[in-house]
Design a protein around this nucleic acid. Structure first.
Lengths: 340, 340
DNA sequence: CTGAAAGCGCTTACAG
DNA sequence: CTGAAAGCGCTTACAG
């Protein structure tokens, strides 16, 4: 009952281990007839390559790594990651690549995971999510020569290739849309302030508000959880000056904000317009349905995976831009009440 | 710039490779002073164990596998899996175990993944989710002698240890609660019919309805997606006899059902009471908030991981029962209108 | 406590 | 086209 090895196949086939190896790997060096015979025997005795032995001979791990640094509470509920992962998986499984997943507590832990994975040759490359300002992971993967692709912008930070999309454009389009409806008091419930894309969105928000004559604007940072989204909404709606529209950095917070507005007796969109960044089914499930910035996140993940695979394959890959989020107007946005 | 090996350490330390190995692994066979010197050198030159080399010498992969067979559309939005994974991770990361994740299309693909992972010694064991009636995975892992733990009941199917909770009791409690409120027409929007726990819940539902004098009951099967949950709700509410209460097999469908009820002009809970199985933040975010069957899913995942690790460690682990879901009454359930 | 050596299962130059 | 052999980096009996 020991696991069969190429030596077993070689013995049965009456050839050398080398020949078996060539046959199994589709290399030249064996006749077609021999190859077929070897393949049949391998199949018959249930041979599987021992990945460790292959790896020791310099083969790749055929695995990519993904370390996620978010509290479980947020991860479980944030559709973004699972959608991203399913897109990544779609790309990997075609090539029989595996995904190594690890949830980490902080930046140090994440960097340690990279060092270990790469040091132990458990992965061939990693996907880096949630890029931060002065992100410590960038110099580490560069030092290590660990193939990596950053999921998320902005372009041109460090030497690591990015897959990004134009969050600034999406946010500007949203502010333009709200301003065109007549909104002049717009708030933003933002994600983690030290994430790069939060900063990008903040800059775009400020620029658009200034340009379009939005007299009053405010931004509150959160951890992306529904709880903090609700809390931020409560603060905004209890303030002296109240926004007539709020843009949320994810749909979970937008749904939470909708609940808060309704609980405070405001009608949406009559008293308050709501826009969500990201458009999971959540946005269509609530009532009123939410206007949202839709992106194809699985496609985004698939693109990132393809780029990483190319980098692992030794190609010099540059940064690529994915499609900009599309504003999908639904029932949660309208002209503000003419009380202004 | 080659990666350092124990041979490099041995040379520097002036000892044999064997001694280095013993020192690095905390085995007896080297003096304390030598061990310390070796450790210092290893640290200094940035040595990392090559996992493949260790694996080839019979070491464990220190990795467990999880293959998930659900469409991406459902996975991305179903909080259950990410919560489960975060619980599993919490248990694994303490022991420096990794998680290998793969999303598969069908049962054959999943079984193939197990064979390959185990054949290639990429994992030390697997977690099996979504047990089905006559599940083909059970005989395969048994044949393979692949350590495995089934996440989800029922107890005693096959020889593989389970981690389960009493869905029947939870469902019965729910029906009792609704019946006590006065409901006599109760529907169930169920998950995939060939999952074991769907069957368990169906049996419990039938039993409880019969026992408690629920005159009318109906069950509609779905794929757990919000779309199918909405569709099932529409069918139920358009029927000749309309339920006064609906129990949903997950919270995503319950939220979708709430949306449908509101869109059809019914008030919740006045015209319709709603109960959700599983209680992600979703249930508290919508308005009215949903009565739900709450489970600690990360804890469930952690328990499963612990059992699997024990099984991998050679302990003979039996099945264990996790806490039964708790009924958390919120604003979506009330007495039915006295029109009956 | 330490050293020399075999072996894990594969790949791949190197000779024939 | 094929065989014999070295080597990947580690672990672990086996002698000293």
């Amino acid at each position: 009952m020991k696991r069969p090895t190429i030596a077993d196949i070689a013995r049965r086939a009456g050839v050398s281990k080398g020949a078996v190896s060539y046959a199994l790997n589709g290399q030249r060096g064996v006749s077609e007839a021999t190859r077929r015979r070897i393949l049949a025997i391998a199949d018959e005795i249930g041979w599987n390559p021992h990945s460790a032995a292959r790896a020791l001979s310099g083969a790749a791990a055929d695995t990519i790594g993904l370390a996620l640094r978010r509290p479980a509470r947020v991860l479980g509920f944030e559709p973004f990651y699972m959608e991203l992962i399913s897109g990544v998986e779609a790309e990997l499984s075609d090539r029989a690549y595996a995904l190594m997943l690890q949830i980490v507590a902080d930046a140090d832990a994440e960097v340690d995971v990279y060092r270990r994975w790469w040091g132990e040759r458990r992965v061939d490359g990693v996907l880096i999510c949630d890029l931060r300002v002065s992100d410590p992971r960038i110099p580490v993967v560069t030092d290590l020569h660990l193939p990596a692709v950053v999921v998320g912008g902005p372009e041109g930070v460090g030497d690591v290739p990015h897959v990004w999309n134009d969050d600034a454009a999406a946010l500007i389009e949203t502010v333009e849309y709200l301003a065109a409806l007549g909104h002049r008091r717009i708030a933003r419930v933002a994600g983690l302030p030290d994430l790069w894309h939060t900063r990008v969105r903040a800059g775009a928000f400020k620029e658009a508000c200034g340009r379009l004559g939005v007299k009053w604007s405010q931004t509150i940072g959160t951890d992306y959880s529904g709880e903090e989204g609700a809390q931020a909404t409560r603060r905004l709606l209890s303030g002296e000056t109240r926004p007539t529209a709020v843009i949320y950095d994810n749909d979970v917070m937008a749904v939470a904000g909708l609940g808060v507005a309704q609980e405070m007796g405001l009608t949406v969109p009559g008293d308050l317009s709501i826009v969500a960044f990201d458009d999971s089914p959540l946005c269509r499930l609530v009532h009123p349905s939410l206007t949202a910035l839709a992106r194809d996140i699985p496609a985004y993940g698939a693109l990132a995976a393809r780029q990483l695979l190319a980098a692992i394959g030794g190609q010099s890959v540059g940064s690529v831009q994915d499609a900009t989020a599309r504003l999908v107007p639904r029932a949660s946005t309208a002209k503000p009440r003419p009380v202004d």
